[in-house]
Amino acid sequence: MPELDPEDAKLITLARSVRARTGAAEGAAVRDKDGRTYLAGTVALPSLSLSALQAAVVAAVSSGATGLEAAVVVSESGSVDPGGAAAVADLTADAPVLLADPSGAVR
């Protein structure tokens, strides 16, 4: 397995931190085309539900991002939420989406 890019490793660290800090089921981080990062945890309210990746994309878009370089989801799940992957693809079709377990190991 090739070594992880340091900027992608940073996204994993950020996604792990938001998951730990909030106690959310998932944590996610995205990097926009300008190198800015946005992170979020799962949102589970009676009136609003977003995966962590959807919420991170929302944070990026609401801050003016028009494209993404990469995205990371930290979760115990074995797959990335399809809605989150679709949100990333809406901005940049070829942006990689990495999935890591809670320890930070990429799956």
Rank of each mutant, 00 (worst) to 15 (best):
A52C: 03
I12L: 13
E76K: 13
V80Y: 03
V43H: 04
G84C: 06
G83H: 14
S47P: 00
G67Y: 00
P2H: 07
R21P: 00
P96A: 07
Q54M: 10
G83A: 12
E7C: 02
D34Q: 12
K33A: 14
L14A: 13
T66Y: 02
E69F: 01
G84Q: 12
V58K: 14
I12G: 09
R19I: 01
S75W: 08
K33V: 12
A85Q: 12
K33F: 02
S79M: 02
V106M: 07
A100Q: 05
V30E: 10
P46F: 05
L53K: 07
V72N: 09
E7N: 10
G64S: 07
D101V: 01
A40C: 02
L48V: 00
V74G: 14
E76L: 07
V80C: 08
A9F: 01
V61W: 00
P96D: 13
V72K: 12
P82V: 11
A59W: 01
Y38K: 08
S51A: 08
R31Y: 00
D8E: 13
R36Q: 08
G35S: 04
S77H: 11
G41W: 06
S51K: 03
V73E: 13
D32P: 02
G27K: 11
V61Y: 00
S63T: 02
A86R: 15
D5A: 15
S63M: 07
S49I: 04
V57F: 03
A95Q: 05
V80P: 05
Q54G: 06
K33I: 09
A70Q: 10
D5Y: 06
L11P: 06
T92R: 04
R107Y: 14
L50M: 14
S75A: 13
V18E: 07
A28P: 11
R31D: 00
S62N: 14
A44T: 12
G84V: 08
A24Y: 08
R31S: 12
Y38P: 05
A65G: 04
D8W: 08
D32L: 06
E26Q: 15
G27Y: 05
V97I: 15
R16L: 13
V80K: 06
E7D: 15
L53D: 09
V18G: 11
S103K: 12
E7A: 15
E69H: 09
P46L: 05
S62H: 12
L39A: 14
V106Y: 01
G64L: 05
Q54A: 11
A29R: 10
A56M: 09
A59V: 01
R107D: 00
A85N: 04
S63Y: 03
R21F: 01
L14W: 03
A87W: 02
L14F: 03
V18D: 08
A56W: 04
R16K: 15
V30F: 04
A60F: 05
V97A: 10
E26K: 05
D8R: 15
G104K: 12
A71W: 03
G35N: 05
P6R: 13
R21W: 00
V18H: 06
I12S: 10
T66N: 03
A29M: 03
L39I: 06
P96C: 09
V43D: 01
P82W: 03
G83D: 09
A28F: 04
A25P: 00
M1G: 15
G84H: 08
R16E: 02
